[in-house]
Design a protein around this nucleic acid. Sequence first.
RNA 1: GUCCCCAUCGUCUAGCCUGGCCCAGGACACCGCCCUUUCACGGCGGCGACGGGGGUUCAAAUCCCCCUGGGGACGCCA
Length: 485
Amino acid sequence: MAFDQVRVRLAPSPTGDPHVGTGYIALFNFVFARKNKGKLILRIEDTDQVRSRASSEQMIMESLRWLGLDWDEGPDVGGAFGPYRQSERRHLHQEHANKLVTSGHAYRCFCTSERLDEMRAKQKADGSQLGYDRHCRNLSDAAISANLSASKPFVVRMKMPTDGVTIVKDLLRGNVEFENQRIDDQVLLKSDGYPTYHLANVVDDHLMKISHVIRAEEWVSSTPKHVLLYEAFGWEQPTFVHMPLLRNTDKSKISKRKNPVSLRYYQRAGILPEAMVNFLALMGWSFGNDIEIFTVSEMIEKFELERINLGGPIFDQTKLNWMNNQYMQKISTGRFVEYLRDQIFNIDQLLKIKPFAVERMDRFDQFLDNNIFFFNGALKYDGIPLVPAGKTNDEMITMLGRLAETLDEVYDWSMDPIKQAMDAVKTELNWKPKDYFMPIRLVVTGRKDSPPLVESIEIIGREMTRFRLRDAADYLKAHPQKTPS
RNA sequence: GUCCCCAUCGUCUAGCCUGGCCCAGGACACCGCCCUUUCACGGCGGCGACGGGGGUUCAAAUCCCCCUGGGGACGCCA
């Protein structure tokens, strides 16, 4: 093999909260790198200019460090193969896209997104194969220069072979064959000049000398495109390893609609990082000898990629909690005190609560009783009438879901945007203020005499607010408070 | 719809590659008992799975085929 060193990478896209799946894949990359005395590279895949956010990048790095998964090269620590943010490598991607156009492996496509939408709608309607119809694949030179001089926007698409098969060698799944004629002429370069995942990924993996691509199973079906790109460039392929997907209880791919997926939520909920990592390790891998509790170092010693179980594991909170309890029981006194001080009663949080707390108590011994919801995780809704008089159980569930979704889009977590988001949902669903705010207050704080709602929500934070909204919706599904008349 | 992946208790899994030691082992959850002035922890026990059908073989959870089921992908998102 031409790769003289194991080099693996973590390639999160900074488009939201640090995802538990990112932590999962990070763990296996980390362990594999350490096992083989190789390097772990953190590369930020921020080629989606619309959705990428610097704050998200920051949170991802914090969460990974919280888990104790450190990297050898990355945007913050540097390295010999930088830059490590794809947006800063744009010229490289463009240069390589142009190479492919010149060599005849790719072409410019001037189709508008309207045309593509129509095309897809049509394909869907008559049930034909989905994919680009290759309208621009064989434009004449004259047509191309005419479009270019009219400065029509274009993308660069890869010219996929029309016959034969492409074989993806996956370390865990063996050879997976794909018929070339079914592979879509993938967009490599968007009209804004940024690369798509496929191009950026292959170019950067090659330039960064990545030896093993360890990523989630959802990528299997686009891997033939990547293989074809390596071939078009004449580059050696890395070894592909596709990990199983973490699942919701209903076996679908883990999603925030059905499960808390933010690592920050688990941190906030008091899960110890070593418990989280240990639990994640058990998703698809096992230590052997019926041992379930082990550290990352112990995992590194015993690790074998080949022993990964390919069935998609369900992310089971109950077992996570048990795992956490196991670590809790062994925690040192120092760490116990530290944790409470830094994570639960942390000074920033107390500072924010103070003005609201002092108005509502005349003795300090009332503090915890009054403000418990600022520190708690899940709340108890038994005996609390959550559904307002004018609404049905189902309407309430729908409202909670919409509000959770909408609040999730609030990246600047401060009063005004939160207020706006809440009003937007109220308007969208056409709820009266009277029916709207009290139930939300009850769900989020567990009481009707809480400090001001928006302020409280801001302090509670996005992850926990979202969790409580979902949790209350689940609660109402299981325990309807009203039956439809 | 098309392509691809996967398939052991409700859940996480061991065993599968290199068939016999497996009428399938461990853990979570659940149930019972014990410990205990409560609860929890802990200990003991119980419940509980090789999706179905064909092969191959003296012998199949383990190898092969079909079916079924589940999942993923089919974006100028990653």
